[in-house]
Amino acid sequence: MTLLALYSPRPGALHRTPAGWKLAALAGLSVLLFAVPELPVAATALAVVVLLALAGARLTARQVLAQVRPVWLWLAGLLAFHLVVTDLATGALAVLRLATLVLAAAVVTATSRVAELVAVIEWLLAPLRLVGVRPGRIGLAIAMTLRFIPLVAERAGRIREAQAARGATRPLFLLLVPLLVQVLQLAHTTAEALDARGADDEAPPRPFWRRS
């Protein structure tokens, strides 16, 4: 089981824009769309985002449509609901707003590398140093998660095979207790190995209430 990020490597102008700016723009867009509930604003925003997706991120039209596909049932249902209960304008606004935000977020994802986004998360969490959190540990935790995903899947398959070999056709959830015990031990061993390599050497910052 391999994991491919949703980053789409293309030589677009948005790929060269720093991830932090794109995230700030996304946050600004969502505030704008809800603070100004006007149909022309939402329609313009959608047009701009589609343009950015095609020209700035160099996504193909098919890729743009694929981003909206997971929510199109929602959008259709929403529009139908508003046609029955309220009116077309309210429904169109809700649908446009949603489609714009979903697409804009997809554009940021497609144009930002995983490492860049992790760096933004660490930067955002930097103020937490004041309460004794090491932001650098976030990157370590993310790396561990990505490593554990195939490991957990593999262990689950192994336990199932072992149970089948003993002729035990047990329901799937009975696999969970032995699986969790096994992977918890594995995580414990991983932590010991990391500590032996100095993962815990940097002392956590002192919380502000313990500083003199």
Binding site: R137, A141, T145, F148, V152, L184, A191, D200
Partner: peptide, 13 residues
């Protein structure tokens, strides 16, 4: 680090 590993493990689960 052990707590961090447990947290990462359950994110993976």
């Amino acid at each position: 680090t052990r707590d961090l590993a447990y947290i990462a493990l359950f994110a993976a689960v």
